[in-house]
């Protein structure tokens, strides 16, 4: 298999298969699915909006997204708040 920068791994994202480039971080995944907020003010806590992320059933805090590398077969959950009782 030729190594090039289009090589992909497959993860499970919210229960569905999802292909992403090797060496992607959680931050890159969130930006790819439209959950990264480009903010001019560089104040960080809400950069990803109202989401929580679980990697293989463990919560990853938002300040760890950029340092968390994804591996083939990882199970990722990206959740938010919805109406409920």
């Amino acid at each position: 298999m030729a190594m090039n920068n289009t090589q992909k791994i497959e993860i499970e994202l919210n229960g569905e298969p999802y292909a992403i480039e090797v060496d992607s971080s959680l931050e890159q995944l969130l930006i790819a699915i439209g959950k990264g907020i480009e903010s001019a003010e560089n104040s960080s806590p809400r950069r990803f909006g109202a989401v929580a992320v679980e990697l293989n059933a463990e919560i990853v805090s938002q300040d760890q997204f950029s340092q968390t590398q994804l591996n083939d077969g990882d199970k990722v959950e990206v959740v938010t708040l919805v109406g409920g009782g």
Partner: peptide, 16 residues
């Protein structure tokens, strides 16, 4: 509120 999976590639959805 409830916790649910984000809808992927649905940036038009309004957020509660």
């Amino acid at each position: 509120l409830a916790v649910r999976r984000e809808k992927l590639n649905d940036s038009s959805a309004r957020n509660i």
